[in-house]
Design a protein around this nucleic acid. Structure first.
Lengths: 198, 198
DNA sequence: CCTACCGATCGGTAGG
DNA sequence: CCTACCGATCGGTAGG
């Protein structure tokens, strides 16, 4: 099914954002190397050379997707981390925010690209990403520290954080909307598994 | 650095196995689509067309890697699941076996390809793999059932199993040998996180 | 942003 | 398993 051929609007803004969005979906579905510029162009109803009017290289498109994914999830989880409440309430809000970004219709292709295609970035771009990732993970390390202080976990080490990230990020592989469980139920189940008291 | 040019041994067996091994490493490092037949040929010191003497298509190479990865981990974890002991002892042996296959020098490229590149398989091949994966996951579901019966976990549902698999499989992303923790320590930490009593 | 194109590279094959 | 090659496709560009 071809995309609907809408009238060309030469000065239409946000064509760049459309490209990034389409690229996120294609990178998530077929991988970075498995996606061609022509795939992306077709998805936004352009000719094959035209995406290069907006991006110098294919790598730059990947970087744009990955940085937008990182920024979005950091904003959402950061807001949850900053809200008032007990360590447990804050933690559960963070779980929900993280899973929402990973699994909801809007952001899931950005997240999947971030999780699975980042290794295709060149060294310089990867360094930028790692900086952002460290800042993001610091939010979680702090939340774990608070949970330990309030006695709801025994171990707030780096390995605990990584195991938690694994349980969370792996949901991308198996979660299907309309699959029985809501995102909220999964968040609750994780906190139930991890935290001691009730 | 070119691979050492050893004398050609035309009737040497196991060239096929060498190809599978090299492919597993390259698929793990650069992805399926990012790896060329020429990369694989070079890695085993062949000419670019020669891998096709052993495999009909590139997809067949991927399938061989993925099935070998699946068979190996199933054998290792199956052996652990069949050993004598309390549910907890059995579970911990399974954790160790799974992590060993994922992280040890031998199998980790097979495992990484299995986890991250399987979606490049065609439908028929994917169906074969899914069958094997279901059998593998049944081992874990049974172990969780036993743990619930002995009162060491509250919830032995499918979601618990998937969250556990996530924590385990995500280690591929961050574990580095000589990185401070041994595989055994990580296995213990997971069981400590998940199980109630001590 | 399109047209028209380039050099490079890709998976795969015929014939030996 | 090598030699020699094919058609298709790729990322990217010049010029408008």
């Amino acid at each position: 099914m071809a995309a609907s051929r809408r009238p060309l609007a030469p000065d239409e803004p946000n064509r760049r954002a459309e490209i990034v969005r389409a690229a996120s979906r294609l990178f998530a579905e077929k991988g970075y190397a498995g996606t061609t510029i022509r795939d992306i162009a077709r998805a936004v109803d352009m000719q094959s050379g035209s995406p290069f009017y907006h991006f110098k290289t294919k790598h730059d498109m990947l970087l744009a997707v990955v940085l937008e994914g990182m920024a979005t999830i950091t904003r959402a989880v950061g807001a949850a981390a900053a809200r008032a409440g007990t360590p447990r309430e804050v933690f559960e809000a963070m779980l929900l925010a993280h899973l929402d970004q990973l699994l909801a219709e809007d952001g899931r292709h950005f997240a999947a690209t971030l999780l699975h295609e980042s290794h295709h970035l060149e060294a310089a771009a990867r360094a930028v990403l790692i900086e952002q990732k460290d800042a993001y993970e610091a939010l979680w390390q702090k939340a774990l520290r608070e949970l330990k202080r309030s006695g709801e976990i025994d171990d707030d080490s780096r390995v605990t954080r990584l195991l938690l990230m694994g349980a969370l990020n792996w949901t991308v592989q198996w979660y299907r909307p309309n699959g029985g469980r809501t995102v909220k139920q999964i968040a609750r189940q994780i906190s139930g598994m991890l935290l001691k008291s009730r």
